[in-house]
């Protein structure tokens, strides 16, 4: 009894010690993967033009069942449109409590570019483009297609990962532009057409408080999100193991990690860009 107790204590102590080390090991391996795939960018862009163009089309339109319902761009637009409607409903009700519903346009001008679109579009990107990549690369890894690539002398990292990274960075700009329009349209539709706020009032406050820097900054956030999402998802796909079930688990793990990373990156970027005390101006 005592012996067994001692052994289990020793075992759990060992696990306690090796746990953080294993985590560190995994982080190091991820960092190496990310560093290498970024370092390959010039070579990959120069050598794999055809694959690059094909991937850009694929990121925008998706493949398989998702392409049937419009691909990642339409899905992102749909999700941000509904998020915009939700924001419109919720802020209208809150402002009405304070008898300030005329400021709906102000809320739209501030909340959409700074919070709503980056968060929602980031999540949509992770769900559509990112986990699609994990599923693809995981399937390739499990069916030994990646090893086959290496055998025929193609470096799999730039060919599979770096090209996807570049495609994501290029495609995020139009997708994000659509997403932002979607959020604004949804917001205005709700407050002006459903709740009967005067359109002139809405536009006036929207124009007054809209700042071009906000839009620019949120595109900076979008590119940052695209890089992080695609790197994380390709890592989990590229290192998937354990047969078909392992691919499913890898996709789930990648989505969990990247949703957290999306918000962490957004927080970091928005604090860097907006923390300046002059970042928000009521007039001018």
């Amino acid at each position: 009894m005592a012996q067994m107790g001692a052994r289990s204590v020793a075992e759990s102590a060992k696990r306690l010690l090796t746990g953080p080390l294993r985590l560190l090991d995994d982080l190091g391996r991820q960092a190496e993967f990310y560093g290498r795939s970024i370092a390959w960018t010039p070579k990959a862009v120069k050598s794999y033009k055809t694959e690059q163009v094909r991937l850009i089309a694929e990121v925008g339109m998706s493949s398989g069942a998702l392409a049937v319902i419009g691909g990642s761009s339409v899905i992102t637009l749909f999700i941000t449109l509904f998020a915009g409607v939700t924001g419109g409903v919720q802020t209208f009700d809150a402002l009405q409590n304070l008898q300030l519903e005329a400021l709906g346009g102000f809320a739209s001008a501030i909340i959409n570019p700074r919070l709503l679109t980056p968060i929602v579009a980031g999540a949509a990107l992770a769900a559509t483009v990112g986990s699609g990549f994990t599923a693809q690369l995981g399937a390739m890894r499990v069916s030994e297609e990646i090893d086959a690539l290496e055998v025929i002398g193609v470096r799999s990292l730039p060919y599979l990962v770096t090209t996807r990274l570049v495609a994501g960075m290029i495609t995020i700009i139009p997708i994000f532009a659509m997403a932002m329009c979607g959020a604004w349209i949804g917001w205005k539709l709700t407050q002006v057409n459903f709740f009967g706020l005067s359109e002139g009032t809405y536009d006036h406050y929207m124009d007054t408080f809209m700042q071009w820097q906000d839009v620019l900054y949120s595109f900076a956030q979008a590119v940052g999100i695209a890089v992080v999402v695609i790197l994380i998802h390709t890592y989990y796909g590229y290192t998937a193991s354990g047969g078909p079930a392992g691919v499913g688990r890898a996709v789930g793990k990648a989505v969990r990690t990247s949703l957290i990373a999306v918000l962490a990156v957004e927080l970091a970027i928005s604090m860097a860009l907006y923390a300046d005390s002059d970042a928000f101006r009521i007039s001018g």
Partner: peptide, 13 residues
């Protein structure tokens, strides 16, 4: 393998 991966991907979407 592609089947399960796609299923999980579509689930999120």
């Amino acid at each position: 393998p592609r089947g399960v991966g796609n299923a999980v991907n579509e689930t999120v979407v």
